[in-house]
């Protein structure tokens, strides 16, 4: 488990707040190669967000070690960007200001900020909305802004926590396809959390299956299908069926 762009070795996390400690994750070891599209799949509560936030440097692992680009993590890495399900856009900033925020935080000069933001806005189809406020946008548009903002700093890995989880099926389908084309053009690594089997099979090169209480890595599934993948094809259905069995009888689909 070494030599990956992102690696976890024996990573565990126990939340100790008020009340009983909660063991959210136990013994997670994984490696993610540069340029790979990896989905973390599991039912809700099995620690997927916890793991992603630890990889983003927002939470400390209780045990084990995480590396990004060969560096042991100690806070957020400049090589990664995170996209949240509830988009995390600043409601008082226009689309442009939101997209420029990560660069502003890194003290990128305004002219360079503007140019890079324009590129990423064009890439995500947002050029017409630069002056809008988040509340004026649809859910799909807001996620596009979140993705554009994440991409501005040339991250080598994009960490996405159920980014399309709150969207209707049609919008979600569009954004999944757009994400794949962004991934193909930007050549970033993507670590994508989802509880949807279909989403994972549609997107991933490799799927890591989690089981709950405490969250553990139960299986690893390579998805060896050419893209674009057709959810109605027999191979797609076969992979999905296998995953459904691993997630347990409780379900797995939407």
């Amino acid at each position: 488990m070494s030599g990956g762009f992102i690696t976890c070795a024996g990573v565990g996390k126990t939340y100790t707040g008020k009340g009983r400690p909660v063991e959210a994750l136990q013994g997670i070891s994984l490696a993610c190669a540069e340029g790979e599209f990896v989905c973390l799949l599991g039912l809700s509560g099995c620690g997927k967000s916890t793991l992603l936030q630890m990889i983003a440097g927002l939470e400390q692992p209780t045990t084990g070690r995480i590396t990004v680009a060969g560096q042991v993590l100690d806070g957020p890495s400049s090589e990664t960007s995170i996209v949240f399900q509830d988009h995390g856009l600043f409601p008082w900033m226009t689309v442009r200001a939101n997209v420029e925020f990560n660069m502003k935080a890194r003290r990128v000069p305004p002219a360079a900020r503007r140019a890079r933001a324009d590129d990423m806005l064009a890439l995500t189809g947002l050029t017409a909305f630069v002056g809008s406020y988040p509340h004026e946008l649809s859910g799909g548009m807001r996620q596009r802004v979140g993705i554009a903002r994440a991409l501005t700093t040339h991250p080598r890995a994009l960490l996405m926590d159920e980014p399309f989880g709150a969207l209707d099926a049609q919008t979600r389908g569009h954004l999944q396809a757009e994400l794949l084309s962004i991934w193909a053009s930007q050549r970033t690594t993507v670590l994508f959390v989802t509880h949807s089997i279909e989403e994972a099979v549609f997107l991933a090169d490799r799927i890591l299956v989690f089981t709950p209480r405490p969250g553990r890595l139960a299986a690893e599934v390579m998805v060896d299908m050419p893209r674009p993948r057709l959810p109605t094809s027999p191979e797609f259905a076969a992979v999905a069926k296998g995953l459904r069995a691993m997630l347990g009888s409780e379900g797995g689909s939407e």
């Binding site: 995170i82 949240f84 925020f101 935080a105």
Partner: peptide
């Protein structure tokens, strides 16, 4: 909103 502070922290603002 807590997510907004996470965004800031992830961006190392």
């Amino acid at each position: 909103e807590r997510t907004l502070l996470k965004v800031a922290r992830a961006a190392r603002a």
